[in-house]
């Protein structure tokens, strides 16, 4: 059952991911990416990380992709305005990433991990559990994240603000 679910989600994820890359229309790409994200969210649920799954949906599907779509629409890129990329370049890209895949897959051969004590903690992905780790061990990174968000906020606002003296430059 779960394995079948896994296969389905994996298939969906990879298919949609490929469609993201090969769709002519950017908006379609965005939509396929959203589907991919949902497939990944499904994987999270399979992996007992419900909280993460929901957060994933909220953050990626709910915020990030909406922003993408927003920008796409704002810039009105619904026609495929992408110029033709030379075949050689595409070929090179395909070769490069293919090589990367092969390397990654090859490196996975003979996977033997340290066998952790397999006491299954079912509530690993609960808010409580995650919160505990986040606010004890990972407190500093958590706080640092605020600096990060602050920086990105200032950056985005600065770039977004229209220039007052447009004629000077």
């Amino acid at each position: 059952m779960t394995l079948n679910l896994f296969y389905f989600l994996a298939f969906l994820g990879i298919l949609c991911a490929l469609l993201v890359v090969f769709s002519k229309n950017p908006v379609h790409s965005v939509l396929y990416l959203i589907l991919t994200f949902f497939a990944i969210a499904g994987h999270y649920v399979l992996l007992n990380a419900q909280f993460l799954a929901v957060v994933h949906v909220i953050v990626y599907a709910g915020a990030i992709m909406v922003l993408f779509l927003h920008v796409l629409m704002l810039l009105n890129l619904n026609q495929d305005a992408e110029p033709h990329k030379s075949g050689a370049l595409k070929f090179a890209a395909a070769i490069c990433s293919g090589a990367l895949l092969i390397i990654l897959i090859a490196s996975l051969k003979g996977t033997n991990l340290i066998t952790a004590e397999q006491t299954v903690v079912a509530d690993l992905g609960t808010v409580k559990n995650l919160g505990k780790v986040l606010f004890t061990d990972y407190l500093l990174p958590f706080e640092i994240t605020s600096v990060l968000l602050m920086a990105s906020m200032i950056g985005a606002v600065m770039l977004g603000k229209p220039e007052k003296n447009q004629s000077t430059e």
Binding site: V54, V55, V57, I58, A61, G62, V66, L69, V127
Partner: peptide, 24 residues
């Protein structure tokens, strides 16, 4: 769900796609 509020929130956040897709 033990993440009920978040679920609501998540569903709410993807609700906008209907409007965006339709509008586009």
């Amino acid at each position: 769900l033990n993440i009920g509020v978040l679920y609501f929130f998540g569903v709410g956040s993807i609700g906008v796609y209907g409007i965006m897709i339709g509008g586009w």
